Amino acid sequence: MIAVRDKTEQILAAAAAAFIKKGFQATTQEIAKEADVAEITLFRKFSTKQNLFITVMKKVLETQFDAKLMKLAEEENTEVFLKEVINNRLDVLSENAPMVRMLISESLMGNLTEELQLPEIIFNSIKKALDHHFQRKEIPVDTELCARQLGGIFLSYIILPNDRPYHNLKTEEKNALLERYTKSVLSML
């Protein structure tokens, strides 16, 4: 049984690398070669390239993009909460920039299912955390507008050119950036 799980993980890792590099255009032959399996093994396990793509991307998105926000929403201090959310999202997006760019590109070309629309995933996870934070504090806030502003910050940081990726900035550079972004969001609350 362990060998099956290992083989599946091997396929998922190879598929993730291929899809991040080439998007949905990566071929099953390339993935099978990288995973060191027969191409038929991919189809036995996932039936279609689309299913493999969805499985890989959902796994990556679940582990990288949604795991921490609800825990951060428990923070009592709104300014600290926003700084932590902004820092966490910029770190995750920056560290996964090739995958993020690929998902945005595939989304714009109409190659993704609704469940893999990265901008919507980012928006919905932020809004959910904002709703939770402000409901706990019993403060009426337009969380949709706030989530849109935060989503714009996050996506623009990936799409627009930067001198260095966020995750490579020095602590003081990150803190200065976090301070500016947080003040911007707080000003609209």
Rank of each mutant, 00 (worst) to 15 (best):
T113G: 13
D131H: 07
I121M: 13
V141D: 10
F134Y: 14
L112M: 12
R136C: 13
E114A: 13
H132M: 06
H132K: 13
N111K: 12
D142S: 02
L145M: 13
Q117T: 05
C146D: 01
F123C: 11
E120R: 13
A147N: 01
V141L: 04
E120A: 14
A129G: 11
T113V: 06
H132T: 10
L145E: 10
E114W: 05
I139K: 14
H132V: 00
A129Y: 03
C146P: 00
E115D: 13
S125P: 06
E120P: 11
H133Y: 03
N124T: 10
L118N: 04
G110A: 02
H132Q: 10
L145D: 03
A129P: 10
H133P: 12
T143R: 01
L118E: 04
H132N: 14
P140H: 05
F123K: 02
E115C: 03
D142I: 07
L130F: 11
K128C: 07
E114H: 11
I126D: 05
K137M: 13
G110R: 07
L130I: 06
R136K: 14
T143N: 06
V141M: 10
K137S: 15
E120F: 14
L112K: 01
K127T: 01
L116K: 09
F134K: 12
K137R: 14
D131F: 01
T143V: 02
Q117K: 06
I121K: 08
K128Y: 15
A129T: 14
